[in-house]
């Protein structure tokens, strides 16, 4: 009977390069499909709000600036988002995508997590509306 079955493997490991990725000194490129922070392209959005309806975590708000002109601001709550990509699936106009780069999202302050997407002038129009930091609205 052997005394230890893992000895060989352990000694092999000793003389091998460790399996460790030394993040943050080196960043390995993230996979193409990685589901990171949400991105919104206002050009094609029709304001149908299916993404808002389907979001299981109430992470998306579609704020109207001018409904007739199809000008909206998408207020996205990174802290609520569960990165499930249902909104991307639901969007018929392919306005939404999940970035595969933006996954280092940690912050010291929750304010940083509320992101407004849209044309600059539209966001300015909404400035008086402060971002809500409360719990997600009740369904």
């Amino acid at each position: 009977m052997r005394i230890s079955t893992i000895l060989g493997m352990a000694l092999q490991s000793l003389f091998r390069v460790p399996a460790t990725r030394s993040y943050p000194q080196e960043r390995t490129p993230s996979p193409e499909r990685l589901r990171g922070q949400l991105r919104w392209n206002p050009e094609k959005c029709t304001g149908c709000a299916v993404c808002v309806k389907d979001c299981p975590a109430v992470a998306i708000e579609l704020l109207e600036v001018d409904k007739a002109a199809k000008r909206f601001v998408l207020r996205y709550h990174t802290d609520r988002c569960i990165f499930c990509s249902q909104c991307v699936q639901s969007c018929r106009f392919k306005c939404l995508s999940l970035s595969n780069e933006a996954w280092e999202l940690a912050a010291l302050d929750k304010q940083a997590f509320t992101v407004d997407y849209g044309r600059d002038e539209d966001i300015h129009a909404l400035v008086e509306k402060p971002a809500s930091t409360d719990d997600p609205p009740r369904l």
Binding site: R21, Y23, D79, L105, A106, A107, L108, F113
Partner: peptide, 24 residues
Amino acid sequence: DVYVPGCPPRPEAIIYGVIELLKK
């Protein structure tokens, strides 16, 4: 002190969160 979003965050994102705390 530090919020790390993600569902779940990748281990690297967790390490990033810890480093954010240390930077603070």
